[in-house]
Design a protein around this nucleic acid. Structure first.
Lengths: 170, 170
DNA sequence: CCCTATTATCTCATTAGTAAGATGTTCACC
DNA sequence: GGTGAACATCTTACTAATGAGATAATAGGG
């Protein structure tokens, strides 16, 4: 049988040099752990679904942003998808090779380029998005609507503040 | 941050092929977006701090798990850190080369190995952990203690359920 | 005991994504 | 209208991490 003596459960008991953390810090650390694990658990669902289409979640993010927001400058796309500038170029290249996305010149700024879905890209998203949304809905169904809204509200505050205070410069 | 012509807010107006989402699905999608962005915003803080020590967050995760839980089997470590099996070997190798971690044989199972902090590793963690915890506390300080606990509780439910239902097999 | 299924770790090829700097463009100001 | 700072994107070199399969050991049924 499973002689897995110590799973994630065993910890409090025999910790050798446990740092003495005050309540606010302990609460924050616990929240971060739960946040990470929850994110990971949900990402499994999302990525499994997206992977079925032979797409990475970064690629799907690009397609989703364009499907949802229409053609947009690569810079705006980058900000939405949370990827490096080189990464954006790379992802858009790959999606272009697959015929799902295309670049278009910007009339008013010759440095800039738009990324836009091709008809194939739009057709793909129209076909797969509803199913993906359903996977997400199901993955999050552990909480009722009211609780989901509550978490959304609290997390938004948390995220906005974290962004606002910038990296720990000092 | 600049006036992103189209943030997550702008959609009703000019979306070309907006999928008609019912309220539960819309709520879930919104929650996922906020969850991702919040996680990313907080990760910036954590990684910036960890990066100062020349560590990646995966490496830090290993050290933290060992510091907090004592020597443990590589498999248990892997489950804690949420990394592939190859990744665990790779990370422990790298930390071993730096003299922060060591492998030890398991008396009762010759397939298995323990990973444990070396004295240097323990010293490093004792030195940097409090500062790191403080960075986290600060990054999450956008919410008061009560709200942090509330979010933790709700996210725990969310994550547990998401894990329990397994990938979208059906 | 031996055989098979299972488990624990490690190896190796591949890859998605990053960081830093290059290229070409626009804008503000003199 | 010329000059330099600020931009938007792209290129290149690199790295952390994955995943599939290899190696090795254990456990239990016959």
């Amino acid at each position: 049988m499973k002689t897995n003596t110590s799973t994630t459960m065993a910890r409090e008991a025999d910790s050798p040099a446990l740092p003495p953390t005050d309540p606010p810090t302990a609460t924050a650390l616990k929240l971060l752990v739960v946040l990470s694990r929850t994110m990971a658990a949900i990402a499994v669902h999302a990525e499994t679904d997206i992977g079925r289409q032979g797409l990475t979640s970064a690629e799907f993010g690009i397609l989703e942003a364009l499907h949802h927001g229409g053609p947009m400058l690569l810079g705006d796309l980058q900000r939405r998808v949370l990827v490096s500038s080189g990464g954006t170029t790379f992802l858009v290249d790959r999606l272009t090779k697959r015929g799902l996305v295309e670049r278009r010149p910007c009339q008013t700024d010759r440095r800039a380029r738009y990324a836009a879905l091709t008809p194939d890209g739009r057709a793909l998203m129209t076909r797969i998005f509803p199913g993906h949304a359903e996977v997400i809905r199901r993955a999050l169904s552990g909480l009722g609507l009211a609780d989901q809204r509550k978490v959304t509200q609290l997390l938004r505050t948390l995220g906005t503040e974290a962004e606002a205070m910038g990296p720990p410069v000092g």
